[in-house]
Design a protein around this nucleic acid. Structure first.
Lengths: 164, 164
DNA sequence: GGATATTTTGCAACTAAATTGCATTTTCTG
DNA sequence: CAGAAAATGCAATTTAGTTGCAAAATATCC
């Protein structure tokens, strides 16, 4: 897979050992075109241990190769950081579909600066918009299809047009 | 307790039966001065069943008496809606302390409008800033004190002064 | 007021996410 | 190649949240 070369380089560049497992996890995230939960990855990478995937994700996040967004549904999802943000994680809004569970980055959305209590130390912030994604809203997805978690979506992140 | 009258009225006004349990849950949230997780409430209201508390919270949220915010730590926290927002839940940012778990409302922070994919239906949004709260940053809280979850904090929501 | 229907509550069991400890394997270093 | 360090797999545990059902409380109707 072409992605494997990429993930190898990314891992090395981030100072992580490019083990086979980490490459597979990162590759999956790279080629997904959308965010993946730990559970998604378990299904996508059969044969890999759940715990090892958890640990890989933690490392990838610490190395700022990916970022995690906590959904209002309580599930943490991971997305590969765009190249220009590598080493400077987060920073954009996300949209979470309450129906199919897909979460997409809204890359062109800057996060606002927020006033915090005096003396507080800010580590990060996340802006999460949630509702029903275009596919689900259009009823294109049957209840059966989307049963449990997000199915492999088209992943195309279209240009935002409406306001929420 | 003075709060009990208030919570009784709030419940009635919202069209919910003002049962003893719901009053206790709502009173706890009213007098907390900060957000409480389900777990906080279980500890704060001994003798009440976990499941009943879950169900009460769900009702309170649906009635827009409180709103819930999903922390980056994966825990859902609940806050009483300010009077002017009752019936119009959400709408402001929150600060979550990663150390003690306390979450406070940043009431004067409006949520920005966010562009979403065309055709998406927005149900809500949340802006969460996380880091270390002033108390923890000042080392006022010992490791033992804050062991597991937020201790009863002062709850004073001071005026935001720095930017995150 | 009493019988009946509806809600609410408590309990037990269950699902799911995430973490921890430890033994084993793999990888790096000299 | 030997020894040290890191990564992996597995089992068990913790925690959040849900579901089904029976018992208790509350409302409704006559």
């Amino acid at each position: 897979m072409a992605d494997d070369t990429t993930s190898y380089d990314l891992l090395e560049g981030a100072g992580l050992r490019p083990t086979a497992i980490r490459q597979r996890v990162l590759s999956a995230l790279l080629s997904a075109g959308r965010s993946l939960s730990h559970r998604d990855l378990v299904e996508l990478l059969p044969g890999l241990d759940r715990v090892t995937i958890f640990r890989s994700l933690k490392l990838l996040k610490e190395a700022a190769l990916v970022h995690g967004v906590q959904g209002v549904d309580g599930t943490l999802r991971f997305v590969v950081n765009p190249a220009e943000r590598r080493g400077c994680p987060g920073g954009h809004a996300h949209f979470l579909c309450l129906e199919c569970g897909a979460m997409t980055c809204l890359l062109d959305q800057e996060l606002p600066r927020v006033g915090v209590p005096a003396g507080a130390e800010v580590r990060g912030k996340q802006l999460l918009v949630y509702g029903i994604c275009p596919e689900c809203a259009a009823g294109k997805r049957s209840k059966a299809e989307r049963a449990r978690r997000a199915p492999a979506s088209t992943g195309r992140s279209r240009r935002p047009r409406s306001l929420g």
